[in-house]
């Protein structure tokens, strides 16, 4: 094929002319002249609705970025953390209620360490991870059992709010210090409608020392033998210590009347 392949090409049309060849130059321009007067084609200005649409999108983008960016912090992994907490060093001496302050600091720990299983709303996952909100374990009078759970973890069948769970939770003895554990427990005990008071780092430190030789996770059944508040591993556990109020009521109903009377007298003393 020669260099001018197309103009020499055998694509002849009916009139015998080469493809694209036109006999009259004014014919040639006719098409263009016909099209030219039409002012719309090729330069339709931007539609007003398009401008409105772009503006609306930009507005949405700003809103979304503000709400779901976790404060643009490199250590914030949950987009639902709307107002990230200032780093602890920045918070000066405050007159805040110690429980509120501790709970605030515990929130970050909770979102990082606990919320993947127990969820940010503390409701757990049905059938897999027990809830913390309204849990009788969390709301118990003292934190004796739950501190142990956080320190060493938990393994085996457990009943929470009337449902059965059977999973494994790892312990945080080596990865959290006393203050972190106290804060996160205070947060758990005072969030999502829970109201169960402050957990102090001292309480955690006492139990950490008391159970320092323990390496395996707690079994719920063993924990139930321990008192809900105070005491350490050596304290004797009353038989009914670990039952939920409902279960306790049931158990009490089954007792013969005279034994029940004796028990009540004992408690009164």
């Amino acid at each position: 094929m020669s260099e001018h392949a197309m103009s020499d090409s055998p694509n002849k049309n009916a009139s015998g002319l080469d493809r694209g060849e036109v006999t009259d130059v004014s014919d040639l321009h006719a098409a263009v002249l016909r099209e030219r007067p039409d002012p719309i084609e090729g330069r339709e200005p931007l539609n007003l609705w398009m401008v409105v649409f772009v503006a609306a999108l930009l507005f949405w983008a700003g809103t979304y970025l503000t709400h779901y960016s976790g404060g643009f912090r490199a250590d914030e992994f949950s987009e639902r953390q709307i107002n990230p907490l200032p780093p602890p060093s920045e918070s000066g001496p405050s007159t805040e209620d110690p429980t509120t302050k501790s709970a605030k600091e515990g929130m970050a720990v909770f979102l990082a360490q606990c919320s993947p299983c127990h969820q940010a709303d503390g409701n757990g996952v049905s059938g897999q991870f027990p809830p913390l909100a309204g849990s009788e374990w969390v709301l118990a009078e003292g934190p004796n059992r739950i501190i142990r759970i956080v320190l060493n973890g938990l393994s085996g069948p457990i009943q929470v709010k009337g449902s059965d769970y059977n999973g494994v939770m790892n312990g945080f003895r080596d990865s959290m210090d006393d203050k972190q554990i106290a804060n996160v427990l205070t947060y758990i005990r005072n969030s999502w409608g829970n109201k169960a008071g402050l957990v102090t780092p001292a309480e955690v430190a006492t139990l950490r020392a008391a159970t320092k030789d323990r390496t395996e996770a707690w079994v719920p059944a063993d924990l139930l033998k321990l008192p809900v508040s105070g005491g350490d591993a050596s304290a004797a556990a009353p038989a009914s210590g670990g039952l939920s109020p409902e279960a306790l009521k049931e158990a009490l109903k089954k007792l013969p009347p005279d034994e029940l009377k004796a028990l009540l007298q004992g408690l009164g003393n």
Binding site: G20, A31, V32, E41, R43
Partner: peptide, 13 residues
């Protein structure tokens, strides 16, 4: 700009 693809061989319209 809009008319650039067109030339004599494959004209507008």
């Amino acid at each position: 700009g809009a008319l650039l693809p067109f030339d004599l061989e494959e004209p507008l319209d």
